[in-house]
Nucleic acid binder design. Structure first.
Length: 271
DNA sequence: AGTTCCCTGAGG
DNA sequence: CCTCAGGGAACT
């Protein structure tokens, strides 16, 4: 569920919390968290100062000099600052400790879909996870957005969720930006008119930037690294509102599966 | 291009 | 008890 706005909010909170800290120890509780990586890959991080935190798509990248620790949170991954003496739950998979402070940073993930990789900083952009990603939706220009759409066969909603098209959009924001632009999720991406593509581009920027400003959406239990919830769920017009009245026309919000994902839309407003 | 699977807790 | 949620890879 963490999508671009949630990962951005986590990155901002981590940037704040990690400023000026150097890693003193790493406690890997579940080796499978590293996927193809090995536990020994983490060793170069010990002793390194944190030099930055950034986001690429839904990936979170903690920079420590010439190494990075990259996370994908998938559905239920998250961070929490805790006193080392505080009890931890069985879903904590990695713990970072620091020279300067007593508090430790815990990565937890109930469903274990998330992963972490320790990579050379120079190799991040060329690693498979990042190399395949499309442009950032808040950076891509209208012309490029329109021309990329034309090359995509398939339903518009599925294309928006495809991280190689643009990186960072998930189920919530795909539904919301389609409603905002009054476009049906089922239409062909390639056949979207330039005017409708422009409306979608505007909606994409508006929805994502509002969501970033609101700290993301907290449905179920998303929180940033400081334990703060997001507030954009209060602005959701269609996501999770099947059966409720469309805020624009009053027709009931419809719900159906598209490409294996639950989709919410107004069949009167969205054409 | 659609379906299945991974995993677990929440909700019916 | 059963079903659902969901990102993304793997499979059909």
């Amino acid at each position: 569920m963490p999508e671009l706005p949630e990962v951005e909010s986590i990155a901002v909170s981590l940037r704040r919390g990690l400023r000026g800290l150097a890693i003193s120890a790493i406690d890997l509780r579940r080796a499978a968290l590293l996927r193809r990586g090995r536990p020994a890959d983490l060793k170069p991080l010990v002793g390194r100062a944190i030099t930055g935190v950034r986001r690429r798509g839904k990936h979170l990248i903690i920079e420590a000099g010439d190494r990075v620790l990259m996370f994908h949170l998938r559905m239920t991954g998250g961070f929490e600052w805790a006193d080392p003496a505080a009890p931890d739950d069985r879903h904590t998979h990695l713990v970072l400790r620091f020279k300067e402070v007593r508090r430790e940073l815990r990565f937890h993930d109930v469903r274990k879909f998330g992963f972490a990789l320790c990579l050379p900083a120079a190799g991040v952009d060329s690693c498979p996870e990042i190399a395949v990603l499309g442009p950032e939706p808040l950076e891509i220009g209208l012309q490029e957005f329109q021309s990329r759409l034309k090359t995509r066969r398939g339903r518009l909603k599925s294309v928006l969720l495809d991280q190689t098209f643009v990186a960072g959009i998930g189920n919530i924001y795909a539904d919301e930006m389609l409603f905002e632009s009054r476009i049906r999720p089922l239409v062909s991406a390639a056949r979207l008119s330039p005017a409708r593509a422009a409306r979608l581009w505007e909606a994409m920027r508006a929805v994502l930037s509002s969501a970033v400003a609101a700290g993301g959406s907290t449905v179920r239990n998303y929180r940033n690294a400081d334990g703060e919830v997001g507030h954009f769920q209060e602005n959701h017009k269609v996501y999770g509102r099947s059966g409720e009245a469309c805020p624009a026309c009053g027709a009931p919000i419809r719900h159906r599966m598209i490409g294996g994902r639950s989709s919410h839309f107004c069949s009167r407003c969205q054409i």
